[in-house]
Design a protein around this nucleic acid. Sequence first.
DNA 1: TCACGAGGCCAC
DNA 2: AAACGTGGCCTCGTGA
Length: 482
Amino acid sequence: KEIIEEIKELSQLNLEDIAILAWLIDSERKNYNLESLTRFFFKEKTLSAPEDYLGQFLNLAEAIKIKVSSLSLDHIWETIEKPLLPILAQMEISGIFVNKQILKHLQEEAEKEIKVLENKIYQLAQKTFNINSYQQLAEVLFKDLQLDVSTLKKTRTGKFSTDVFELTKIKDSHSIIPLIIDYRQLEKLKTAFLDPLPQFINEKTQRIHTIWKQTGTATGRLSSEAPNLQNIPSKGEWGKKIRKAFEAAPDFSFLSLDYSQIELRIASHLSLDPKMLAAFQEDKDIHTLTASLINNIEEEKVTPAMRQLAKILNFGIIYGMGAKALSETAGISLKEARKFKEEYFHDFSGLKNYLEHSLEQAKKLGYVETLFGRKRFLPLIGSLGQIGRQEERIAMNMPIQGLAADIIKLSMIKISDFIKSQNLDDEVRLILQIHDELILEVKSAIIKEIAPQLKVIMEQVMDWEVPLKAEITIGKNWGELE
DNA sequence: TCACGAGGCCAC
DNA sequence: AAACGTGGCCTCGTGA
Ligand SMILES: Nc1nc2c(ncn2[C@H]2C[C@H](O)[C@@H](COP(=O)(O)OP(=O)(O)OP(=O)(O)O)O2)c(=O)[nH]1
Ligand SMILES: [Mn+2]
Ligand SMILES: [Mn+2]
């Protein structure tokens, strides 16, 4: 501890700062602790004797500073990551209230439903087995019940896949299949959310305090762990039920602001694609447009589920999805998928050119970067085969996903400054960041007045031709935002 | 008892 | 599962 304090004073950096700087240099590492960083930056040496630690750490901090500035990463550090750090620390301290009784109730409800499904499955299988074991499940389906395997994909280790997509393909061949699909979903919600979440509730605060990881991704996004609050279920009846357990404090409400079609808007700005820019100038919704084209219906008839699927298609196509995957995801023929992609990039030819430009830059320089200079190195991009191809897709994705991350981080900083400047610390708190969405806890009495101001901050953060748009929703709990 | 890969699935 | 990408975390099976 003493040593750490000394390091702080001498280098003007603390351990967290060093980790973040190292992450800016090399964003794909698992680990940014001092041991592994020392090994990385002074390749031949390992940690020396304890009495040399201080000197070694100072050397490390110095080496990292030099590297940061040679890669021009100072800007992103000074303007984004450094001011963000205390904001994340405050968000951890704030936490979010979770209603234990609701969770417990849902847990029991899920358990009952799971038991019922379990028994029906055993009956149809005429034996009991562990449904959670896909090996045992595959044996029951394909040996005992003799279900047709001819259409089924194999996993990469050569076994028959039993994932939802494959099960759905054969769902009409036996009444056990739909039950297994339902079982899987409920079991997932129970084991991944309902069971563990109560454990994370802090006794003193009755709130969950996630860990916000500032060095957790290769693109600049945040991640959240213990528990991950960025993947709480949102779809369907159960998603809503679970989110309802996250409640605003008495006299407070949740305010959510989610950027509309964010990576598409960013892509239009970066590519200057005339059609895509025009679409956003006219406040069009490209996810909805894609849904209407795929389903052959009017945009007014597009359901939320259809729009969600179209979202996957839009980003999938942009980031290099193949025609085969497109056809299966969209539920269209291979021929139609090929045609859809062709027309997509014909319509958005400026986008296509931009993506190719990203690829060229990556091949030439060995890295890609965002508008703010956040970098991701791609040492294998020239190589033949699967890994080379994968890095090509990364090269197309990172400058866009990474810029989206830069943008929302800037918004967080501006919103935090706004809260401070207006002396609203007791009335407005940042609670969650979910990649392109901020959730705040705001005194109900002033929320109507605050919401549009925060919306403006988020929408004006970039000063671009293409409008950024943030959608406001408000509610007493996370499941009932309107 | 623990660590790890595989398979799987939740979110953006 | 796949020529979309970014994560975290669950269970199972296996091997120390
Ligand atoms: N590559 C990829 N990126 C995704 C996917 N889903 C979400 N994202 C990224 C791109 C989105 O712009 C961003 C935010 O997700 P949202 O669910 O908020 O979607 P988006 O903002 O596009 O539409 P929205 O108007 O908010 O419904 O996350 C996906 O399936 N693939
Ligand atoms: Mn969005
Ligand atoms: Mn979102």
